[in-house]
């Protein structure tokens, strides 16, 4: 069998199609939280770091798919820098209005970029894994799994670790444990850029039971381009805010959330959403902002601890 092409992704791109085209997806954001890089020319550290690593070939990939439309303009620009450095790059656009026909045409373009669909059965296998993912997510909300361990699995649903067997094994290695649920927290916004965030939150007695973006990674699936388009068109981050907020309201209620932590990234447009989230979501809310990757800084820990105390008072 020929060596699989390794395809970089900057955000959610249906991995079903990448596997179906016999390629191996790699979410370039995976390397960021552990990175010690100080990028030269940056707004958001997420895009700046993968841009620099790819352009300098510190990250070896055959090509890159940039999620631009309906997601992130910083990625759109940094993706073009990667393209100019000589890496084949494809730009993928989600429809703001959720039009499945538009998304279908985007998916056809994506398949053209990747080659051809050779292993259509992969979609079904991924669907099964996502079903298990949803169960894991539900178990965490019931206090049966550690928040950090579940997060690490959930965030990996964007690329399924590039290999379905490896990923299945990682899921199987999760061990049930009893977690005391004292402060049920929803983490909304983009994921924190700190590699230990969930464990730090847990050490401060805040149990994350909802991870907004990682939940999107496992929420959508489909067996072919037609069904994938009709499911992924509801990817909340690409849709208007009221659509995303309605979805959040339902999920937060279902999970009996005590409070929300809204993570925002320096120089990211999602920061502008904070006041809307605060006015529409009727829960105690802490907004934090991160910039460079690494361990959760003391200033953020202070805010988390004070937030826990505020929840105690509520």
């Amino acid at each position: 069998m020929p060596v699989q092409k390794k395809i970089g992704l900057t955000a959610l791109v249906p991995p079903e199609l990448i596997f179906a085209c016999r390629c191996s997806p790699f979410d370039v954001n995976n390397v960021i939280p552990g990175s010690k890089k100080y990028p030269r020319n940056k707004l958001c550290a997420w895009t700046a770091i993968w841009q620099e690593m790819l352009s300098k070939r510190e990250l070896k990939l055959d090509s890159l798919i940039v999620v631009a439309g309906g997601d992130c303009h910083n990625a759109l620009v940094d993706g073009q820098k990667v393209e100019m450095s000589g890496i084949p790059t494809h730009f993928f656009f989600y429809p703001f209005d959720g039009d499945p026909l538009y998304l279908e045409s985007q998916l056809y373009n994506l398949v053209d970029f990747l080659g051809t669909i050779e292993s259509p059965e992969k979609s079904g296998q991924i669907k099964e894994l996502k079903k298990i993912g949803k169960k894991i997510d539900a178990k965490r909300a019931q206090g049966k799994l550690s928040s950090g361990n579940v997060f690490r699995i959930m965030i990996s649903f964007s690329d399924l670790m590039g290999d379905l067997d490896v990923f299945r094994e990682a899921i199987n290695s999760l061990k049930e444990q009893k977690v005391e649920m004292n402060n049920r927290v929803a983490l909304i916004g983009v994921p924190p850029i700190y590699h230990d965030f969930h464990d730090v939150a847990q050490s401060l007695d805040l149990q994350v039971v909802f991870d907004e973006l990682p939940f999107e990674f496992l929420r959508h699936s489909g067996n072919d381009i037609h069904t994938i388009a009709r499911d992924y068109c509801n990817y909340t981050f690409a849709r208007p805010l009221d659509f995303r907020i309605r979805f959040l309201q339902k999920e937060l209620e279902k999970r009996h959330i005590d409070g929300i932590v809204h993570y925002t990234q320096f120089a990211c447009h999602h920061m502008l959403e904070d006041e809307i989230m605060r006015s529409k979501l009727d829960y105690p809310m802490l907004t934090i902002q991160g910039d460079l990757p690494g361990k959760t800084p003391e200033q953020i820990k202070l805010r988390l601890e004070a937030f826990r105390e505020a929840l105690d008072r509520a």
Partner: peptide, 14 residues
Amino acid sequence: RNSVPHCASVTEIT
């Protein structure tokens, strides 16, 4: 607060 002896600690905010 966490570097000095204490039986309980609380953030400056609270």
